[in-house]
Design a protein around this nucleic acid. Sequence first.
DNA 1: TATTGTTATACTCTATAACTATA
DNA 2: TATAGTTATAGAGTATAACAATA
Lengths: 140, 140
Amino acid sequence: MEPRLDTQTGYLLVKLGALAGARFDGVLAPLGLRGRHVRVIEEMRGASHSQQELCQATGLDRTTMVAVLDDLEQRGYARRSRSTADRRKHVVTLTGAGERAFKEAARALADAQEAFLAPLSAGERDQLRDLVERLRTTTG
Amino acid sequence: MEPRLDTQTGYLLVKLGALAGARFDGVLAPLGLRGRHVRVIEEMRGASHSQQELCQATGLDRTTMVAVLDDLEQRGYARRSRSTADRRKHVVTLTGAGERAFKEAARALADAQEAFLAPLSAGERDQLRDLVERLRTTTG
DNA sequence: TATTGTTATACTCTATAACTATA
DNA sequence: TATAGTTATAGAGTATAACAATA
């Protein structure tokens, strides 16, 4: 007899990932953000990028990027301006408010992660991180 | 400076879970099944159930269950019949073809999991399974 | 002709609610 | 009136393709 699917590592990984994702979404929601916004902002920090470059860095497609930047611009977290070098491109820059929003989001996410991993000891968390990272870089 | 989000355990867990889910979906697709179908079939094995009971066992809601059972019935993997005890209920039973399809799917999933976890040693897989399981039962 | 950003369209999912047939 | 199953509808999410402006 086959072992129950829901006792297997693969299934557990899928479920745990979904659970973690929901937690993180829930933490960002009160800030009016979603994961993708945070990832895009993180990418913008320190330097300006074209939308194209942001797409490559984050893996979002360009139509999604338009919507994300619309959101960020509307909240005053980012600004778009035409590139003088290539007028097809938009130079996207992070505002001070955007930087502050990122810090707040990063803190909230770190707290949520801390709570999520709380059942494990420090050593076990390191183990988990190592195993997961290796799977992701090797398998994925 | 904050550490990159994509180097953190929580983020890695979310991504790895999504990756594993995509793999498993990909393995089931050629069989014309999705995860939910397999979970429902697994629940039906050995005993008959009402749709309601299948919903409780799998966490699917009843409108989704209708679609899943439509699929399974169309493929000849399941049959619905009126309960004589309570004619509102459908007694759902697994067919021989359904049982065979389940075995095939379970094997394909086991192979996919094996490949997915291949970068880890047997001991590390046990570790991973233990850590993930504990997180899921404690945190989730 | 190709590229950047944008908009429009269509498709999938899901969640809700309305409907039927029984109880 | 409540329950089991079904169907219909609407909303969000995503992916594709068409479009405008530059190059």
